[in-house]
């Protein structure tokens, strides 16, 4: 008996020494690359959360917290919702905007039960476009996982493409064109949003008139094709 117990203790000690634990906590390194040539990401929200919560659902109306993020880059509402769900959040890993082609890395320690990874950020300049990863099941196997993300439209604001500084929910217009290449005097591309559920963003239209036309955006700078982001997750 004594020998058996000792063996068991030794086995446990060996397991501990080799870093194998029975808890489901995981160490993640999440790298996000902005693949676009001319679009910026507002501060990212990266979260490991339980299956019971999600940041958005395709084909469903955006929550007001998602709307805040998609129209103005404000992640506080989504962050608060996730905190209530006992999620592990990393906010703003890039320390501000993530410029075109740039990468940022978030180190995330998950607690047991937070088996799903999500991330969001508004895409500027758009009316309510965002890049999103929605409830990706975190693999239990150690390794490096790479995939790409598409651009979504929150469906909460018409894509008028007019730069007004308006980033508050329900206020028309685009908050800013951080690259400094936005125009003025656009009369507005779209006045209504026909699909008011979360959907794939149709992309910016833009025009070639900096001081007039329909859009304040440039058709050679502010368009994109999917995918718009690359994510590399190292499960350690």
């Amino acid at each position: 008996m004594k020998i058996k117990k000792l063996t068991l203790t030794t086995a446990t000690a060996l397991l501990l020494a080799s870093g194998i634990t029975t808890a489901n906590a995981q160490q993640l390194e999440v790298t996000v690359t902005n693949l676009t040539q001319g679009m910026y990401y507002t501060p990212l929200l990266v979260s490991a959360h339980p299956a019971s919560t999600s940041l958005y659902a395709l084909g469903q109306p955006a929550t007001s917290a998602l709307q805040m993020m998609a129209e103005g880059g404000d992640i506080s509402g989504l962050s608060a919702m996730l905190t209530t769900a006992n999620a592990n959040n990393i906010e703003n890993p890039a320390g501000g905007l993530l410029a075109p082609t740039m990468s940022t890395t978030a180190m995330l320690t998950t607690t047991e039960g937070n088996d799903y990874l999500s991330l969001v950020a508004m895409i500027l300049p758009t009316n309510d476009g965002f890049v999103g990863l929605n409830s990706w099941k975190i693999p239990t196997e150690v390794g490096t996982y790479t995939f790409t993300l598409n651009a979504y439209d929150a469906g909460t604001e018409a894509n008028d493409e007019v730069i007004t500084g308006g980033g508050a929910p329900g206020v028309a217009g685009i908050p800013a064109a951080p690259g400094g290449d936005g125009g003025t005097g656009g009369s507005g591309v779209a006045m209504t949003e026909t699909n008011t559920n979360v959907h794939i963003h149709p992309g910016n239209l833009g025009d070639d008139d900096l001081t007039g036309g329909k859009s304040d955006l440039s058709n050679t700078v502010h368009r994109w094709l999917n995918p718009v982001a690359r994510v590399t997750v190292k499960v350690m």
């Binding site: 001319g38 075109p100 833009g206 070639d208 050679t220 368009r223 094709l225």
Partner: peptide, 30 residues
């Protein structure tokens, strides 16, 4: 920008870039 990025696609003169030599026929998607 002197950095490699994803391409944003062809605009073309048919879609509002008057100086473009290209038409809808040269537009592509991934």
């Amino acid at each position: 920008i002197d950095k490699v990025a994803m391409h944003a696609g062809i605009v073309s003169k048919d879609d509002g870039l008057m100086q473009s030599a290209l038409t809808q026929a040269e537009r592509f998607d991934n």
